[in-house]
Nucleic acid binder design. Structure first.
Lengths: 334, 334
DNA sequence: TAAACTGTCGTGAGCGTTCACGTAAGCGAA
DNA sequence: TTCGCTTACGTGAACGCTCACGACAGTTTA
């Protein structure tokens, strides 16, 4: 049975007090350079690692941030996680993950449980909870950063892209390429789809095209979901020549559905994705999509949560990220 | 400043002692049904949640398992994580993730840091560390389950598939379809590739075909890696008609490379993957691959780590999982 | 009837830190 | 000298639990 090396062990060996060791390892002042060196040498000699549990108990920080993620299996989410993780890890933060499968109940529980775990901050990467549901956590003293949903309140801040404008650009691009009957494949629920609708309809209306409800299909956010929705869409609207989707996964499913129905992509149907996951440039045909820089998102989210931890009284406005249309084969009609 | 509800608060309100509350919430005996009910009612009324930090400090378990993962961006890994996570979460375990990018140094540090965090157990999902490197952790009293590498020692156990046999089956299948010049695209490093080589060569030799080193290319485990390796492979061996790969990601890259080089898949080159990630059945052409049930892997890993936590003295033999060949379009020559 | 046991509960200590103090030495200024 | 300030430490308490006990009924056993 191995016994853990504690701060007291180090203190004893170095011939100083507990507190002095603490001062040394935490870079606090009130300690002379000489003693600091001596202590630090002892620390590495004895292989001492402070216990995060004890630190969390005694101090105010657990050096842990919670991350709630809708589905880690979604490559767009995974990329953001990875980047956020790397930054956090570099600053000795632990990342505590909760995979919620986009379920509202689970997500609410996840927020509560993470706060109860004394995380220093919380990042939410899932389009499930709405502003009101989030607002109830304003009074817990745990800063929250929400990704992809604009909200800013006490202790709550966000990193967003302009989904509405992006979707509008996509539809305008498709109309510019001569498409007049454009379908929308999006997720179930209202929450983040509303921006999606918004952009879609703005573009349609501006162009004076008919705003037809049968051109919209909703499904779960997976390849299978995109596949099913597209099947329905094309059955109801055989004259449809383009589809814009909620994300790349649904787009990949859409391509599959088109192929099964004998509708060539892009010659018979153009498909537009959202996110630019790695597969988008490796599939056949390669996928036109909205590029969101996952690395940038992860970086901003981490920076923001750190700022909020450091200055809890400040209220931060949403950070809006740029997006680009990436045109590839799936919309490139001959 | 919100104050946390502690076990003492509950005890006071319920008119019992701390320890009695502890007995109630932990389902220990030495408490009458009446008091238990009364305490539990008070617990939910006050919204009391025990502090994992304090539990970890005071008790022997932190209810946390560590998971080291090579690259969470790899869908095969993500699936296993998700399943393991779900099971762990259902039993109130936290999962502490470390993403190591397959780097040996990071991975060794990750193991040490997780042990220092007092995790109850550790699961390693990465083909990076070899048996000797792992063996040094036998003496820490923290059970370790290694996925995809056969090893069993004190405190160390594993969940594996027979990569060698699987690869052999693939090559035999390809030869059975008339292929005589078969390339191998695998990862850099020796560790898990050795089983890959083994199966490949066994099949080749049994058939009496020449064992040509130029038919093997190594790269990083990504689509891009598979893409680059395949480019080199086809340049050096234009007469090659089939490629078997380390995993589906590399296979997807291989398909891309073939398309760029004007080699039709499967008519000119057949491609075989490994893992059966969701994209394998949604890409074009759909990918023939080895099916590994990620859900089963995650389940076994979690069950095993729980067994090891419960009975630290027992040494478990590797659990070997079944695999299947899944034949799809990418090897289906007309 | 005394002794031993069983069921139910409470108490003190300890886990490994940080925090808010207290203290002693050294130095300069009034 | 005397006071105050700074620098460099040390000390006790606290964080919220679990663990190993101890205590005290009530019930069985010898």
């Amino acid at each position: 049975m191995k016994k853990r090396t504690t701060i007291d062990d180090v203190a004893r060996e170095a011939g100083v007090s507990r507190q002095t060791v603490s001062r040394a390892i935490n870079g606090m002042d009130g300690i002379s350079p000489n003693t600091r060196d001596r202590v630090m040498e002892m620390v590495s000699e004895m292989g001492y690692q402070p216990s995060r549990l004890a630190r969390g108990m005694a101090g105010s920080s657990t050096q842990t941030i919670g991350l709630i993620i809708g589905n880690i299996t979604n490559p767009a989410h995974a990329e953001i996680f990875q980047c956020l993780y790397n930054l956090a890890d570099a600053e000795h933060y632990n990342v505590l993950l909760r995979n919620t499968n986009y379920e509202k109940e689970l997500e609410l529980k996840a927020v509560q449980s993470l706060i109860a775990e004394n995380v220093d901050g919380l990042v939410i990467l899932s389009p499930t909870l709405d502003s009101e549901e989030l607002a109830q956590f304003s009074d817990e003293d745990c800063p929250i950063v929400v990704i992809h949903r604009a909200i800013s309140a006490k202790n709550i801040s966000s990193i967003v892209t302009d989904t509405s404008r992006a979707t509008k650009s996509v539809v305008e691009y498709l109309m510019g390429s001569g498409h007049e009957c454009i379908g929308l494949v999006t997720r179930t629920g209202e929450l983040s789809t509303i921006r999606h609708f918004e952009g879609y309809q703005q573009a349609i209306v501006m162009r004076g095209l008919p705003n037809c409800p049968s051109l919209i299909e909703q499904e779960e956010i997976t390849m299978r979901g995109g596949y099913l929705a597209t099947h329905r869409l094309l059955k109801q609207n055989p004259n449809l020549t383009a589809i814009t989707t909620y994300n790349d996964l649904m787009a990949l499913g859409a391509i599959k559905a088109c192929q099964e129905l004998g509708r060539h992509v892009p010659d018979s149907v153009a498909i537009f994705g959202y996110n630019d996951i790695p597969f988008a440039s490796f599939c056949t045909p390669t996928l036109s999509t909205i590029r969101i820089d996952g690395e940038e998102v992860g970086k901003r989210a981490f920076q923001r949560i750190k700022e909020m931890i450091a200055r809890p009284e400040v209220e931060f406005p949403p950070a809006v990220l740029d997006i680009d249309l990436v045109i590839r084969e799936s919309t490139n009609r001959q």
